[in-house]
Simulated scan of single mutants.
Amino acid sequence: MTPAAPHATPDTREDRRTGLALLLGGLLGTLASGVLTYEHLRSLADPAFVPGCDVNAVIGCGDVMTTWQGNLLGFPNMLLGLAGFAALAALGAALAAGAALPRLLWRALWTGLAAGFAFTAWLIGQCLYEIGALCPWCALVWAVVIPLFWYVTRRLSAPGSPLRALPHWLVPLTLYAVVAILVVTRFGGRLLA
């Protein structure tokens, strides 16, 4: 007779859900970073190349990729995204499969996501108020980083913490609404022109 499998604890179930979010977010972020890398390389090889995401004067990747903000550390930001999001997807796959991460790795994950969240918030401001353009692939990255940072923050909060009492969807949805209001306030009807 084989021993019965232990029941999943609340932390194990939460880790698996967080893992699925990290896996999905990591894959979407890797996709966005990969497309941006491809478009950037094409534009370097052919100055006449127009990225497929250039829709109008407001919505386009080309204007964002060529700014100093798009190359903050001396190389294109999307290269950070390729590495970072691939790592998130790998950790997410491990968690979703039932792996248990050591506390130190959870803290490192949170630190990386906190840095990514701060960088994302800064880039949102730069796109809206300095560059004056919205990159659709960058917006996908924003849409991924916001909930991932929240879910890992929530996961690491102490049991009984007010963060755990909030519905899991509330903070990401609120931040999406804030970004949408900022975009509409900044660009208005020019988004569709």
Rank of each mutant, 00 (worst) to 15 (best):
L123N: 13
G116I: 03
A108V: 15
V141A: 10
L80E: 01
C53K: 08
Y129I: 00
L79G: 03
T37L: 14
L95M: 12
A86G: 11
D46V: 07
L80P: 00
D46A: 08
I146N: 01
Y38T: 09
A100P: 09
W110V: 00
A100R: 15
L44Q: 15
N56F: 09
I124Y: 03
Y38A: 10
L82G: 02
D54E: 12
G98H: 13
V58I: 14
R154I: 06
W137P: 00
F119R: 02
V58H: 06
L95T: 06
V55P: 01
D63F: 02
W150C: 01
L44T: 09
D46E: 14
V152R: 08
L156K: 10
T37Q: 13
G60S: 10
L156Q: 15
F49M: 06
F85C: 02
T120C: 09
L72D: 01
V64E: 07
G52W: 08
I59V: 15
T120L: 03
Q126G: 07
D54H: 04
F149R: 05
V64I: 04
P76S: 07
I146S: 02
W106G: 03
L95D: 01
A93P: 00
R107G: 03
P76V: 10
A115P: 00
N71F: 01
L134M: 07
L101N: 09
A87K: 04
W150L: 01
C61A: 13
W122E: 03
A87T: 09
T67I: 04
I131L: 06
S43K: 07
L148E: 12
R155Q: 14
P102T: 04
L140A: 12
A115K: 00
L88N: 09
L73M: 12
V64A: 11
F119C: 01
E39I: 10
G132H: 06
L156A: 09
W142I: 02
G52Y: 05
R155T: 11
A143P: 00
A99C: 09
F149S: 08
P147A: 04
E39Q: 13
T111D: 04
V50F: 05
G132T: 05
A87E: 11
V58K: 04
V50G: 12
A143R: 06
E130L: 12
A48E: 15
A48N: 13
L113W: 06
I59R: 07
G62L: 02
A94L: 14
V55W: 13
L101A: 12
F117H: 08
P76K: 09
L105C: 08
R103D: 15
L79Y: 10
V55I: 13
L72C: 03
L104N: 01
V55D: 00
T111H: 10
P51N: 05
R155P: 12
L73K: 08
G60N: 06
R154T: 05
I59T: 09
L72N: 01
C127F: 00
C135K: 01
A57R: 10
A108M: 14
W150T: 02
T67A: 04
I124L: 12
L41C: 07
L91I: 11
W142G: 02
Q126A: 14
A93V: 00
R154W: 05
L91E: 11
W106D: 13
F149C: 07
L88C: 04
P147S: 05
V50C: 10
